[in-house]
C-alpha cells in the first residue's frame, strides 16, 4: 500500500509525535525511556495502520496504543524486578544538563508523579496535562467513566500528599542545618 493515502496517514502521525513525547515524558520521566516508548508505539502503529479509520484523528488511536505498551512495560518491570535498572536510568538522567536546570520544585513534582501508581498517573496526565475529556480518556484507557474519575481524584490526592511530604522533609532538612 504505497499510496497517497499512506503518505497522508504518515504525515498525520508525524504531527502527533510532540504530543506523544510529552505524554510519555510525564509517564516515565527519563527522556530516553520516554522516547523508547514513543518509538515502540509508532512502530506498532505502522504495522496496524489498517485499524485506523480514515478521517479519524490519529491522536486517540496513537495514545491508546501507547497506553497499552506503557501498562505492559510497567507489568514487566514489576514481574522481572527490573525496577532497579529503570530507576538507575532515572538517576543518571538527573546528571544530564537538561535536567540539571530543573528547579527543586519542578523536580519534586516529577518525583511525586512517578510515585503515583501507573494507572492513576496515566489517567491524571491524560486529563490534566493532555487536556482530554473524561469520555475520551476513559475510552483510551479502556475503563468505565466512573473508574476514570476515581483514578483522577485519587491521583490528585496522592500527588498532593507526596508534595506535602517532600515540602515537610525539606523544611526538616533546613532546620537540621
Amino acid at each position: 500500500m504505497r499510496s497517497a493515502v499512506m503518505d497522508e496517514k504518515k504525515a498525520a502521525i508525524l504531527q502527533e509525535i510532540p504530543r506523544l513525547r510529552r505524554y510519555a515524558r510525564a509517564l516515565l520521566r527519563d527522556r530516553d525511556s520516554a522516547d523508547d516508548l514513543v518509538q515502540d508505539s509508532l512502530e506498532r502503529a505502522l504495522v496496524r495502520m489498517d485499524n485506523w479509520r480514515t478521517g479519524e484523528s490519529p491522536r486517540r488511536w496513537l495514545f491508546t496504543i501507547m497506553h497499552h505498551l506503557f501498562i505492559d512495560q510497567m507489568r514487566k518491570v514489576s514481574r522481572r524486578g527490573e525496577a532497579s535498572i529503570l530507576s538507575l536510568d532515572a538517576t543518571e538522567a538527573l546528571a544530564t544538563p537538561a535536567t540539571q536546570t530543573e528547579s527543586v520544585a519542578s523536580r519534586e513534582i516529577v518525583d511525586a508523579l512517578q510515585q503515583i501508581s501507573p494507572d492513576r498517573r496515566a489517567a491524571l496526565v491524560m486529563v490534566a496535562i493532555e487536556g482530554f475529556s473524561y469520555a475520551e480518556a476513559a475510552t483510551m484507557l479502556g475503563v468505565p467513566a466512573g473508574t476514570l474519575m476515581s483514578r483522577i481524584a485519587r491521583g490528585r490526592e496522592e500527588l498532593r500528599g507526596l508534595l506535602d511530604d517532600q515540602a515537610r522533609r525539606r523544611a526538616i532538612r533546613i532546620v537540621e542545618k
Binding site: I13, P18, R25, V38, L42
Partner: peptide
C-alpha cells in the same frame, strides 16, 4: 512542567520509525 516538551526538536529516530 511538561509544556516545553512540545517545543523540543523531534529525535530523528522517531521520524525514521514513521
Amino acid at each position: 512542567l511538561f509544556a516545553g516538551v512540545l517545543e523540543e526538536p523531534v529525535p530523528s529516530r522517531l521520524v525514521t520509525a514513521v
